[in-house]
Simulated assay, not measured.
Amino acid sequence: MSSAFDPGPPADAAVVAAGEQWTLIFVRTLPHPLAKVWAALTDPGRLDQWAPFTAAGDLSRPGATTLTTVDGPDRTDLPATVLRAEPPTLLEYTWGDDLLRWELAPAGDGTRLTLRHTLAEPDLAPMVAAGWHLCVAVLDRLLADDPVGVIRGRDAKAHGWDGLRAAYADMFAR
């Protein structure tokens, strides 16, 4: 069994205007090699262990797919299109009306992960940041071979989501 789960303090994050949309920029340095992080971002079997959705196909190739948001027993299929896949440094895809761009760069022995999640409304940014914060913390533990199990949807409330949302709201208000 894994040790206790602590998602840690808020990550480096910001919200910037992009025309009529807003982009959450979420940055985390993970102590894992680029190739390992890339595989976790693109392989459906690995995504299912940490992401807020399941993927109908491999995200390492451009093309249409479906991402299914999971919240307890509820499942919502959303169309997705992988727009760019440049292993192991750039992955960009749509998720419903949102656009996600994952940028990976070497950071010592690890990987600097930058997520640019474009949203229709800036008010969603603290909630989205808190959700990705938990997901990336789960991803880090998964890649360290110390999995805690996927935490998504309403289950996130039991793992500090409310406090993280409030912390990100304060951060973005400055």
Rank of each mutant, 00 (worst) to 15 (best):
G160I: 00
L30E: 00
L113C: 08
D6N: 11
G108C: 05
A4R: 14
L59S: 10
A156R: 13
H133Y: 09
G160A: 01
L59M: 15
R174M: 07
W161C: 07
L78I: 09
T89S: 14
Y168E: 05
D146R: 13
M1E: 02
A14Q: 10
R174I: 10
Q49G: 06
T114P: 12
A35P: 01
L142W: 05
A55H: 09
M127G: 10
A125W: 04
P147G: 04
L90S: 06
D77Y: 08
L164C: 03
V16Y: 00
P31A: 13
T68A: 05
C135K: 01
V70P: 07
S60W: 14
L100Q: 07
L47V: 02
E103F: 07
A107G: 02
T23F: 10
R84L: 12
L142D: 00
A167C: 09
D48T: 13
T54G: 15
F5A: 05
V128Q: 00
D77F: 04
A130R: 12
V150I: 07
D140E: 14
T66E: 11
L41S: 05
L67W: 04
L134P: 03
I25Q: 13
P31F: 08
A40M: 12
A137S: 13
P122I: 02
Y93T: 01
L164N: 00
W161S: 01
G153C: 06
A107D: 13
V16K: 11
R112A: 03
G57M: 10
P79S: 09
L143W: 06
A56D: 13
L142I: 11
Q21M: 03
T65E: 05
P88F: 08
L115Y: 08
W132D: 01
G19Y: 12
L143V: 08
P44I: 04
G110C: 00
L90K: 06
R174Y: 07
D98K: 13
H133E: 05
D98R: 14
A56M: 12
L99D: 01
L104A: 03
R141V: 02
D123Q: 11
P88W: 11
L91A: 05
A166H: 02
A120Y: 01
T76Y: 15
D74A: 14
P87N: 07
G149A: 11
G96A: 08
D43P: 12
T81L: 15
V138M: 06
T114N: 09
T114H: 13
R174T: 04
P73F: 05
G149K: 08
R28A: 08
H117C: 11
F26P: 11
P62D: 09
K36Y: 02
F172Q: 04
A144W: 06
G108A: 05
R28M: 07
R116P: 01
A120S: 09
S2P: 14
P7K: 04
D43Q: 15
A11G: 04
A166P: 01
G110T: 04
T94W: 15
E86H: 12
T81K: 15
C135R: 00
T42N: 10
D162L: 09
V138E: 02
S60V: 15
D58H: 14
S60F: 13
A137T: 05
A13T: 03
V82S: 02
M171C: 00
Q21L: 09
P9K: 12
D146E: 08
G8R: 06
H32G: 08
L30Q: 03
R174G: 11
L47I: 10
L90N: 05
T94S: 15
A11L: 13
W102T: 01
